[in-house]
Computed example of a mutant assay.
Amino acid sequence: MSKIEKAKGFKHSKPGLWLSIGTSAFGAISVAKDVRKARAESDTLKLINALVGAAALVTGTALLVRELRRLGDDDVLLG
């Protein structure tokens, strides 16, 4: 297996999924800052943009968790 194939497989491995979830957590910090800034400026459009970004992060994280659970279901040792 080449290094490129291994790298592509990492995305769908448990460590790869945990890394993606961690990255989403850092994204949540950015979204929280955007919400605070939009509220301070009373900018409705920026607030809507930040809330849509938050919804995207929540959805993406839920998909990652679902994929992580599916990998766990395939593990014979987990029962």
Rank of each mutant, 00 (worst) to 15 (best):
R36M: 15
L68Y: 10
V31E: 08
T23W: 08
A50V: 06
A56M: 13
V35C: 04
G60S: 12
K14F: 01
A28M: 15
P15A: 04
R66M: 05
F26N: 11
A7N: 10
A54V: 03
G53K: 14
K46M: 02
R36H: 11
K14V: 15
K37S: 13
L63Y: 11
L68M: 04
S30C: 00
S42Q: 09
K8L: 14
H12F: 12
V58A: 15
S30F: 07
L17R: 03
S24M: 05
P15D: 06
L51K: 15
W18T: 02
L45K: 15
G22A: 12
V76T: 06
L78Q: 11
D73Q: 10
L77V: 08
F10P: 02
L19M: 09
S42R: 09
W18C: 06
G9R: 13
N49M: 03
L78C: 06
L78G: 11
L45N: 13
L71F: 01
G9I: 01
I4R: 14
L77S: 09
L17Q: 07
V31W: 06
V52A: 10
V58F: 10
G22V: 02
A38F: 05
A55I: 05
V35G: 05
T59S: 12
R66N: 11
L17S: 06
V76Q: 13
A40M: 03
E5W: 08
V76P: 13
L63F: 13
L77Y: 08
G53I: 01
D74C: 01
A28S: 13
T23P: 00
E41V: 02
K14S: 02
S24R: 09
L57R: 03
G27L: 01
M1H: 08
A7W: 10
M1A: 09
T61K: 03
L63S: 10
V31I: 15
A54K: 11
L45S: 13
G53Y: 06
G60Q: 09
K37G: 06
N49R: 12
A32Q: 12
L77I: 02
R39H: 08
T23N: 14
R39P: 00
A50Y: 03
K6D: 11
T59W: 10
P15S: 05
S13Y: 07
R70F: 03
R69H: 07
V58Y: 10
A40D: 10
K37N: 13
S42T: 04
L64I: 04
L68D: 02
I29F: 11
E67Y: 05
H12G: 13
K14I: 12
R70M: 10
S30N: 07
